[in-house]
């Protein structure tokens, strides 16, 4: 069966094709892109913290949150 016809069941109300999954991902990225600038900077600082906890080094912006 072609992958774009194949349906994947995640839950009874959540049945998707691979194409739909990737379209959903793309939609999610576009929604995230619309977040307010301030919100994105908060997320950035959290990402910096995660990166430092993984690598054991790296800058974390010391800004008021």
């Amino acid at each position: 069966m072609k992958e774009d016809k194949q349906k994947i069941i995640f839950d009874k109300d959540k049945i998707r094709t691979r194409k739909e999954i990737f379209e959903g991902k793309e939609r999610f990225h576009k929604e995230q892109a619309k977040l307010p600038f301030e919100e994105k900077i908060k997320i950035l600082v959290e990402l910096q913290k995660i990166a430092r906890s993984i690598k054991g080094k790296g800058i974390v912006w010391e800004i008021e949150e």
Binding site: H29, A33, L35, F37, K40, I43, L47, A51, I59
Partner: peptide, 11 residues
């Protein structure tokens, strides 16, 4: 870039 896109790691 992050102003226009989803958040990503930058320093």
């Amino acid at each position: 870039t992050l102003f226009y896109t989803e958040p990503f790691l930058t320093y």
